[in-house]
Simulated assay, not measured.
Amino acid sequence: MVRKIAFLIGLGFIAVLVIGLVSTVIGAIRTPPPESAGHEFHLEPRPASFASDGAFGKWDRAQLQRGFQVYKEVCAGCHSMRLVSFRDLEQIGYNEPEVKAIATQWPVEQPSVNQETGEPATRKNLPSDRFPSPYANEVAARAANNNALPPDLSLMVKARDDGSDYIYSLLTGYRPQAGYKNEDGKELLKEFPDAKTTQGLHFNPYYANLNIAMPPPLTSSGQVTYSDGTNATVDQMAKDVSAFLTWSAEPNLERRHAAGLAAVLFIAIFCFLAYGAYKNVWADVKH
């Protein structure tokens, strides 16, 4: 009798789960979520294929250091990374003296106050400091960029769909607008007839409305000289800085993957032990 009641309770529980799943699927089909503004135009990002991809992905620290070099020499003049500290660079393979040297030699110093006069001043960066913004404030940033505000890059990978691939595709996607064709051979402006061009903007088929204020940051091979001797092509630099920004957005990725693997192993062992306990408890019961 007890077994029948337990069976009915379990059956009811399963029925509730199935009903909930089916209703959720039907609701998603009938009322799909609205697409974001980023889907109005643009091509889908091209896959960059990083070592960190997948459930067992790990950081390629040599690539992260190259990406940091690209950020430092190309991107840092306009874009801040206000959520990243210099000492965080130890996670990508730099040692403590190297981090201290990077902080001290950073071209932008930390804002400070002269203790004697109370006037605004600056001081050398410390490893505990976060990357300073290249501009004093938003007004200065817009004034230097034709009224466009360069976004902070700390969490940019998380702020965009397919963030890592999006950044890679965007950096390598600048094209002359006239006659440009996508991967299917279709002229882009015929595929998106509502697209409009604006003087002073740059055509990029991976950007939301095809026109972006940022000029091409990576313009030629050898723009950065890698310390490890890697050939600095535009494609390589774009991949490396995209990998670095992926790390800045999720520095705990390796620990998260390890914790997930440990959780799966724990669940597998628990299921095995639970099945063994079930067989032992009901071993003497006749069917």
Score class of each variant (00 low, 15 high):
residue 11 L to A: 14
residue 239 K to M: 02
residue 5 I to K: 13
residue 132 P to W: 12
residue 35 E to F: 08
residue 99 V to I: 11
residue 19 I to G: 07
residue 171 L to F: 06
residue 266 F to K: 12
residue 240 D to I: 05
residue 196 K to Q: 10
residue 62 A to C: 03
residue 5 I to C: 09
residue 224 V to E: 01
residue 156 M to G: 02
residue 172 T to H: 02
residue 184 D to T: 15
residue 233 T to R: 06
residue 178 A to G: 13
residue 261 L to W: 11
residue 18 V to E: 02
residue 156 M to T: 10
residue 107 P to Y: 06
residue 8 L to Q: 09
residue 146 N to P: 10
residue 215 P to Y: 04
residue 196 K to P: 00
residue 237 M to S: 01
residue 114 N to L: 05
residue 285 V to I: 14
residue 54 G to A: 02
residue 31 T to H: 14
residue 148 A to H: 15
residue 28 A to G: 09
residue 182 N to F: 01
residue 61 R to K: 14
residue 223 Q to F: 04
residue 164 S to Q: 06
residue 165 D to M: 00
residue 211 N to S: 15
residue 71 Y to T: 01
residue 211 N to K: 13
residue 125 N to K: 10
residue 186 K to Q: 15
residue 262 A to H: 05
residue 36 S to G: 13
residue 22 V to P: 03
residue 147 N to A: 15
residue 219 T to H: 08
residue 94 Y to R: 03
residue 175 R to H: 04
residue 240 D to F: 02
residue 82 R to K: 10
residue 118 G to N: 11
residue 232 A to K: 02
residue 135 Y to A: 10
residue 286 K to E: 00
residue 22 V to R: 10
residue 225 T to P: 00
residue 98 E to P: 07
residue 16 V to H: 03
residue 244 F to S: 00
residue 60 D to T: 03
residue 248 S to N: 03
residue 154 S to A: 13
residue 268 A to Y: 04
residue 74 V to G: 01
